[in-house]
Simulated assay, not measured.
Amino acid sequence: MTTGLPNFFEYNLWANLRLLDFCEQLSDEQLDATMTGVFGSIREVLMHLFASEEGYAYSFTKTRPSSPLKEEDSFVGFEELRRRAQLSGKALIDIAKERDLGETFWLDGGVYECQAYIVALQAISHGVDHRSQIATLLAQQGIELPALDAWGYNDALHSKQ
């Protein structure tokens, strides 16, 4: 089996869905807690995370959902976030399998130049960063997030076999 960038996006989708499953069980108070140094509340971080992921997929496909997520919108709920995470996550996996990541992109209305692999790298690092922020918000409340790191992913892969 060949491994590569698609595996990173498979991990990213797994971690995002596991995060949503866990956060769905939290109380409103826990979801709305915030602290200095973190993007916002858990709800705000989740909206930002998945709005951004739709944007990364858009950079490649130039297609958006009929009503794209906007991080400033009201929280859309876990079912809708899960649906969108699956769509953008699967799109990024397919992109990693099929696209030339050496392609040049002009982002931000054509004023920002980068290679496609930079967008892919940003999508992965952005997810890790914000999942860590949610873990910090939860830790401050005495709540431990399940393992969302590579070791947790490996364990999940092996438990399916």
Rank of each mutant, 00 (worst) to 15 (best):
S67G: 03
P68H: 08
P68R: 12
P68A: 01
P68L: 11
L69N: 12
L69Q: 09
L69H: 05
L69K: 08
K70F: 07
K70R: 13
K70N: 14
E71S: 10
E71V: 11
E71I: 07
E71Y: 11
E71G: 09
E71Q: 09
E71A: 13
E72K: 15
E72V: 14
D73W: 03
D73R: 01
F75N: 08
F75T: 04
F75Y: 08
V76N: 02
E79I: 10
E79T: 15
E79P: 07
E80F: 03
E80G: 11
E80H: 05
E80S: 06
E80P: 02
L81W: 01
L81V: 10
L81M: 09
R82C: 08
R82D: 06
R83E: 13
R84S: 04
R84G: 03
A85D: 03
Q86F: 03
Q86I: 06
L87H: 07
L87K: 10
L87S: 07
L87A: 02
G89K: 01
G89S: 09
G89V: 00
G89P: 06
A91G: 07
A91R: 10
A91K: 12
L92V: 04
L92W: 05
L92N: 06
I93Y: 01
I93Q: 04
I93P: 05
D94T: 13
D94M: 12
D94S: 13
D94C: 10
I95L: 00
I95K: 03
I95S: 00
A96R: 02
K97T: 02
E98D: 11
D100Q: 11
D100L: 14
L101W: 08
L101I: 07
G102D: 14
G102L: 08
G102W: 10
G102M: 13
E103W: 01
E103G: 06
E103H: 13
E103D: 15
E103K: 14
T104P: 06
T104M: 13
T104N: 13
T104H: 06
F105T: 01
F105E: 03
W106R: 15
W106H: 12
W106K: 15
W106V: 08
W106P: 00
L107F: 09
L107A: 07
L107C: 11
D108W: 08
D108F: 12
D108P: 02
G109A: 14
G110R: 10
G110T: 05
V111M: 11
V111H: 04
Y112G: 01
Y112N: 14
Y112A: 12
E113C: 12
E113T: 14
E113Q: 15
E113K: 15
C114S: 03
Q115K: 15
Q115W: 03
Q115N: 07
A116R: 09
A116K: 12
Y117T: 06
Y117V: 09
Y117F: 14
Y117D: 03
I118P: 04
I118E: 15
V119D: 09
V119N: 07
A120T: 12
A120V: 14
A120Y: 11
L121T: 15
Q122S: 08
Q122P: 05
Q122M: 02
Q122R: 12
A123K: 00
I124K: 03
I124E: 02
H126V: 11
H126A: 04
V128P: 00
D129E: 08
D129A: 12
H130C: 09
H130L: 05
H130T: 09
